[in-house]
Amino acid sequence: MTCRPQYVQECKCPDEVMNCIRETLGECLLEMELRERMDGMPRRVLYRDLWIRLKRDGFLKLVDRLMEIDFLHFHVMSGNDDGDVVTLNLHCSLFREAGAGHRLGVTLSIPIPKDDLVFPSLSGRIPGTEYSEREMREMLGIHFEGLQNTDLLFLPENWDEEIKPWRRDETGPAPENIRELS
């Protein structure tokens, strides 16, 4: 799919986006929460964040749908080793250029089972995700399908690639890999 590389100038209301997401995901949607961020004087809602938990199968479908609404601006991926699953969070935003207070933060949170740590790469749709995907690959060991460049990003060249620094199980850094400076 070719995405239009520009931002929309008019936003939709969050309810509309949420309905759209519900429709698109169907049973892949695990959880959805809209947070209103209050600040200022008088204290009022300044912007909103949308937190979505979904199954891996619905991910690409949702991204494509959101791309039709506006170019999905990608901030960063975060992730954590939660025991049986590795949770991957994509922090994005919509309506970046649509005016004061209209930006909608969107977090897509996807649990990936550890025995099948595969995730579709977004780098074809949003080139800006390349670094994050490479980082998640080396830190958490997630294999991104379709990621061209799998060179190490942050770890030194002589790093043992079997060690994934952010994992909490046996693939994480062993005590001998860790140095105490003082």
């Binding site: 600040d39 300044l46 207070g101 930006r103």
Partner: peptide, 10 residues
């Protein structure tokens, strides 16, 4: 501008 925080809303 697009998602004001702290005092920037004012």
């Amino acid at each position: 501008h697009s998602s004001p925080y702290e005092a920037y809303g004012d």
